[in-house]
Design a protein around this nucleic acid. Structure first.
Lengths: 181, 181
DNA sequence: TTGACTCTCCTATCATCGATAGGTAAAGTC
DNA sequence: GACTTTACCTATCGATGATAGGAGAGTCAA
């Protein structure tokens, strides 16, 4: 079952996530297409397994990051790791963060690692002084905007993501400026 | 031909852009599926017509906006109009701004209105003091991030997009702050 | 040992999709 | 009036995800 998911990632890397056909996947694994249904009740269940797998990868990556003591530096390190993870594998990013597969909605279990990841991000932002829901929302949307623009318009480059540190400072300073008025 | 595009938008509104099938579209217009090929050489050509149509709508909308004299207020008004346009019709937004349809790449002609629109946005940002490519990139990515988060997580609401004005001020003030150091 | 059960794979087939082949009848053109 | 073009049709193609139903090997209790 894990080998099927691995083969699916391989095909996704060649033709995009949406381009994975069950017949090609079966051929890759050495069986016939209907046999895949012994492992996955539908194609979306396969996507769900890939989604869970990708989220586990993300969590492992972010847990391996050594966070500096300084809260602001910690936020930057965390977000840099996240951005690197997104940019280094586009199909994985598409499956995890874009709602691009037509009828696919991740199951609650598969979504759970993503939630714990998001919680960590929110904690770090809180520690760095971003306390309100609004500020956190804006920060998260900013990072997502950078990654999306990067992947859409300059895949492999750094035209957008290189601005993360500067923008992070700007967002983290904003509550201070607001209270000074 | 225009009525076919209109029917396609109607179907897209019901089932999403990707959910438009040529048979359903033909039924909607009152003909059989192969007859659609008299008007569009392929499904992607139909998408291209929809893309061009949506971009014309966008351009018309933004030309109707009365821009205040103050450059900063003009940027805000322009971006608010853009955001409203995106949020009010999700399938249209998906087709125009997401790369979600598998093999679809807009043609140069269809893309042209989008380019003139982007030029206007860049002009306004320049007038408001954002001069470097980097600053413009960041601003654009921020707006896209807001819209995307809004549509993905809270369609119909304003949890993200309501922060536009505040964030716009923050981005537009940043060059000033940078030079003061 | 045997019978029942399950697990894993198969072949054959389905409905739907976008796309093509080839024909027909009306409308326009010279 | 002969020709071409336009706008439609039926029939069919190959690929897709999904289902039906069966074959063979392994497990396990009687």
């Amino acid at each position: 079952m894990a080998s099927i998911v691995a083969a699916a990632w391989k095909l996704a890397g060649e033709q995009g996530v949406g381009g994975v056909s069950l017949r090609a996947l079966a051929r890759e694994v050495g069986i016939r297409q209907p046999s895949l249904y012994e492992y996955f009740d539908s194609k979306n269940v396969l996507y769900d397994a890939m989604f869970a797998d990708g989220n586990r990868q993300l969590l492992a990556r972010l847990e391996a990051v050594e966070l500096p003591r300084d809260p602001r530096a910690a936020v930057k390190a965390f977000m840099q790791a996240l951005i690197g993870f997104c940019v280094e594998d586009v199909p994985r990013y598409v499956l995890l963060f874009q709602r691009q597969i037509p009828g696919f909605e991740p199951s609650a279990e598969s979504y759970e690692p993503a939630r714990t990841f998001l919680n960590r991000a929110v904690e770090l932002l809180h520690a760095a002084g971003l306390e309100s829901q609004a500020d956190v929302d804006c920060f998260v949307a900013m990072v997502a905007g950078l990654v999306d623009a990067q992947i859409s318009n300059d895949p492999g480059g750094d035209r957008w993501v290189r601005h993360l540190d500067r923008l992070a400072d700007m967002y983290l300073d904003e509550p201070k400026r607001r209270s000074h008025r």
